[in-house]
Structures are given as structure tokens and as C-alpha cells.
Design a protein around this nucleic acid. Sequence first.
DNA 1: AAGCTGACAGCAG
DNA 2: CCTGCTGCCAGCT
Length: 114
Amino acid sequence: MADESFYDKVYDVVRQVPYGRVTSYGAIASYLGTKGSSRVVGYAMGASSGMHPPIPAHRVLNRNGLLTGKRSFGSATLMQQMLESEGITVEDDQVKDFKKLFWDPAEELGKNLK
DNA sequence: AAGCTGACAGCAG
DNA sequence: CCTGCTGCCAGCT
């Protein structure tokens, strides 16, 4: 591996996010080793839009559990409905029980992959 | 090759 | 307590 660009790594992690589960940019960035590049993680998501393998970017939220990237989906309501469709409660563009639904790649993938 | 942009995060005022 | 600015890393023009 390692032939993939930083973006691909992000896509890989996001694609492994289980159904009805969410993660944050900092978690992914930290897992990739680029903790300070939380912006790059989110930027990768924006590039995932229109990609062949659909990236569940709607499961990626910010540190606050807020649907920050909803504008990149084209429709703010779309992202929220997608999350609700997975059983996630969203209110005021913020995920309820975010901490409970939080999916840590460093923990899930870390014990399985590495 | 250099500079700018960008779906965040953390610190300062 | 809330608002604003800078810092980070990688990709794109």
C-alpha cells in the first residue's frame, strides 16, 4: 500500500465507516498521522464528490459534530436526511449523541488493520 | 516552480 | 462566555 495519495487514504477510512456511525476530521487526520491537517481531510471529501466509489462523506463531521460540509453536498437537507436515514438523529445541523455515534478509525481500524 | 485555496481546530482577545 | 484569527498539509491553477 502506500501507493495511494493522502486523499485516497482518507477515502479508504471514510468508506470503512460503519452504517449509522460518524467520524470527525481530526480523528481521520490523526489516524493518518497528519493531525494538524484536518482541513486536508475535509478537502479530500470535497474531491470525493463525483467520484466513482461513493464516499459517505455525510458521515464525516467536524469536531463539534456539526454538518459542516453539507454545503458541498449541494443540498444541506440532503446530508441531514442521509444521516437520519441511517438512524442518526440530526438537529440544528448537529448530530445527537455524536459522542456515542462517534467512530474512531484509530481504534476500529487500528486493532484490525495494524 | 510559486502561490492560493480549502467540508477544520485550537488559542487569543 | 462568545467571536475572531492564525496555523497546518496537500492538492490545484
